[in-house]
């Protein structure tokens, strides 16, 4: 197949390209908005995309989660060492953690888990997007397969827009295996332009925005 590569590149290189299009790199984003503004923008964008946002101080998180589990009728929750210590212990759902590989867990993951809870890498105010960098502790299918996804977002990790998140977190220097922006529950409008939630991924996304 190397000949295919050579042929394609030879065809492309045959065309003399003028150097007059010396475009600058994409410009820097404008002035930094306030945290209050970003929070409002973030919440509004997420809610208009059918996500639920709960703003809470860290110390009240366990209590908030307890109420949430009851409200959402969550009886099995996929968690990890990163979130386990924040979870309620009394009247709690059954907690499970991702074993060493999806191969031995697929059956349970697809059929037995009601919800998952993960942390996040940050968030984007402009579009109401959560940045996920799944890793060995919180694998990528955790935020995808269970019907409900709960995600923790630190208010101080809000970025005004995608460009500033990329720049300030220096993504291009160390891209993770998989980076994901999530901006709501899974949805589709493929049948007669009628919006329906829970197409293939979670049908509910609950964002716990941690202040202070």
């Amino acid at each position: 197949m190397n000949s295919a590569k050579q042929n394609i590149l030879a065809r492309l290189n045959r065309t003399p390209l003028s150097a007059k299009h010396a475009f600058a790199r994409t410009a820097q984003s404008p002035a930094e908005p306030s945290t209050e503004f970003m929070t409002e923008q973030f919440v509004q964008a997420l809610e208009s995309n059918h996500a639920e946002v709960i703003i809470t101080v860290r110390s009240a998180l366990t209590q908030v989660l307890g109420a949430l589990f009851i409200e959402k009728k969550i009886s099995t929750l996929l968690t990890s060492e990163r979130t386990r210590h924040m979870l309620p212990t009394a009247e709690a759902p059954q907690y499970s953690e991702f074993p060493e590989s999806i191969e031995i867990f697929k059956q349970a993951l697809f059929n037995k888990i009601d919800a998952s809870i993960t942390t996040s890498q940050g968030a984007i105010a402009e579009t109401g997007s959560i940045i996920l960098w799944p890793d060995s502790v919180e694998p990528r299918s955790m935020s995808l397969v269970p019907p409900v996804h709960l995600v923790l977002v630190e208010q101080k990790s809000l970025f005004p827009d995608f460009q500033s998140a990329i720049q300030r977190q220096a993504w291009s220097q160390a891209m993770p295996t998989n980076a994901i922006l999530v901006s709501g529950p899974s949805k589709t409008a493929d049948i007669q332009q009628t919006l329906a939630y829970g197409a293939h991924g979670p049908h509910a996304l609950v964002v716990l925005l941690l202040t202070g």
Binding site: T127, G128, T177, N178, I180, G201
Partner: peptide, 13 residues
């Protein structure tokens, strides 16, 4: 303003 998912794949498992 953005799709529900933006998925950026850089490496296999």
């Amino acid at each position: 303003a953005i799709t529900t998912y933006v998925n950026m794949i850089t490496r296999p498992r």
